[in-house]
Design a protein around this nucleic acid. Structure first.
Lengths: 348, 348
DNA sequence: CCGACTGTTGGTAACGTTACCAAGGCGGGT
DNA sequence: ACCCGCCTTGGTAACGTTACCAACAGTCGG
């Protein structure tokens, strides 16, 4: 699987020397023209530009960045799961800000695999990226330590890495989960189930903490029997929801800490309604928005957040560090989330 | 917005010369070791590898690809809208296959802007990408002509570019739309509305054609009054659906040619149900899947397709061309779509 | 014991670009 | 008229890497 297969020869990209020859000037004059034309006679500039157009010349950025001090103009991004629409938006936000700064992004998908993350980071460094933005996996993170990264600027998104000081953009997971849970308590629910990720997942831990805070603040006990924190996919979430709802003391509301769990829970609820099973039709609070939540057969409150904005903030942090003092202390930006209640009356 | 701000100095990446010095060999021996170690004494290889580990050496891929004939190992991708989950999956598919071939992807978002696409392609070429994969915009495409691209391998995805011969991966838009429409006709519907894109959009045209084919085959007339082909976003789709459903001769079913139109139509239907408005509760056929379609208040048939697979096919076409004969004629792969009916009984 | 061949190593040059320096031309001030 | 300084131009070298060639050591067959 290496890159050693025979490659077809590009039909030859013109170089600056050929441009210079065609324009009848030295490569230096052509280079200066292409870099703003400082101290180049206007008529020569025109000849150079004409030659550029005629040959379809495109500067070789790789060769350019070879010279010391020249940035490559590339930003490396590693994301845990590009198929997740939220991270697609995130990548878009980063791409936009990068483009505004004349940079491009190299993108890799880790699939939550720390080994793949290490490999990607290493490759990015080999391509001389100007900085790294990553949604870190929860595995081994030795490859992100300062002694390995040198002073390569690094921004973490969505999650922190234990023991690593770096610029970070996060959501207000705790606050969002707290407010979502409070809304259930305000509506009179006292038996609330929880679906989420295990505590080793950074956001899983934070969202559970927000849930816990709200419950304890209102003096409502958390029943471990209706807390399920180990679902990674929709089917597991559905099974966990089923187990909860099959209980005689089934919850009247469910807090779901992420999109996968919400979909699973709603599938299970849909099945029960269709099959005419008895038991509560639990309200849902879902961390992560999804479209048409207002058309669900039970009221769904969503805790919404903006992946694109998270990406933009991450890129902004990176460029601030890139253009400013590299030794400033690590900063953390925590983006607000919004709690959107079911539109009144739009639900039965 | 150029890259001319002061950059912080990287703390110096070690070079192969430093590795060689530390290992007590020449740079050539170090280079050979790193490239497979052919004809290098094992003990020297070990010294080199030890030096690599000690210095944390990472080969500079940009310098490497400067030598003629060396591929850069980069694939350029331009996508119209990364925030669209379908294209996120597409990018993931490309990334996976690229990674299997030891390549990385540079990703740009065009936002349906032909000028931006031109800029991205030009930049990708400047970075010496080994190939291009794009979801083309519908604007001017002069920058994609062979005389501009040389023999840079190019794969188009989702859409063709008029007058341009290139490897292409498409969905079976016509067949999917045909089968979806047939399913409505089979269910006894004769008054079917259409929501989609204008005919200048490649998929918009193809999906309408499939719809048309099914209708004419069954001898059912298409009423232009309930055909709306100019909606780009959810709100416009909702307004178009509303106009149709407000008519005395409202359709009893709607064919929606894409996700945005489906969401808009369903929002409008949800509103009417909630407000208790009279009129039909139209069944929907939706080109593009979405989660929880089975929980909608009206039966939804989805025409499903796999963005990741489309991405994998696109990348496969590219690598076939890259490793094989560059002059083989352009190929087109048309991926099948699946028509998923509402799960029987799961709907009222 | 010699020649040929194989295996191993290193020097040189080149990829495309631009920073640095040197040199030439021109204008203005004295 | 002369000199100084600025504007303009081009030559050279260097960035990190590796292909090519040359050189040398060791081995084997005759």
């Amino acid at each position: 699987m290496s890159a050693s297969q025979p490659e077809r020869g590009r039909s030859h990209q013109p170089t600056i020397k050929e441009v210079a020859r065609l324009a009848g000037v030295s490569p230096m004059t052509a280079s200066r023209t292409l870099n703003g034309g400082l101290n180049v006679r206007p008529d020569l500039q025109e000849r150079v530009m004409a030659a550029v157009r005629e040959l379809g010349y495109q500067r070789n950025e790789n060769a350019r960045s070879l010279r010391p001090g020249q940035p490559s103009g590339l930003i490396g991004i590693a994301i845990t799961n590009l198929a997740n629409p939220y991270y697609g938006s995130f990548a878009l936000g980063v791409e936009e800000v990068a483009a505004e700064h004349g940079r491009r992004i190299i993108l890799g998908n880790t699939g939550e695999d720390a080994g793949r993350e290490r490999q990607l980071v290493s490759d990015f460094i080999g391509r001389q990226v100007d900085g790294l933005i990553l949604v870190p996996t929860s595995g081994d993170s030795a490859h992100l330590r300062p002694e390995r990264l040198g002073d390569m600027p690094l921004v973490l998104a969505s999650r922190r890495v234990p023991g690593l000081e770096a610029d970070t953009v996060l959501l207000d997971d705790v606050g969002g989960a707290y407010r979502g849970t409070i809304s259930l308590l305000d509506a009179g629910h006292t038996r609330i189930g929880f679906l989420g990720n295990r505590s080793s997942v950074f956001t899983g831990e934070r969202r559970y903490r927000g849930f816990e805070q709200a419950m304890s603040e209102r003096g409502v006990a958390i029943d471990p029997a209706i807390v399920a924190r180990d679902q990674q996919d929709v089917d597991a979430a559905r099974r966990a929801a089923r187990a909860m709802l099959d209980r005689p003391d089934a919850p009247t509301a469910i807090f779901s800490a992420n999109n996968r769990n919400t979909i699973g829970a709603l599938r299970e609820i849909g099945r029960r309604i269709h099959d005419g099973l008895p038991g509560p039709r639990p309200s849902i609070v879902s961390f992560d928005d999804f479209e048409l939540s207002e058309l669900m057969p039970v009221p769904v409150t969503v805790i919404d957040h903006d992946g694109r904005r998270l990406g933009r903030e991450a890129a902004t942090l990176l460029f601030t560090r890139l253009t400013g003092d590299g030794d400033m202390p690590a900063r953390t930006v925590e983006l607000p989330v919004t709690v959107e209640f079911p539109r009144p009356g739009e639900r039965a």
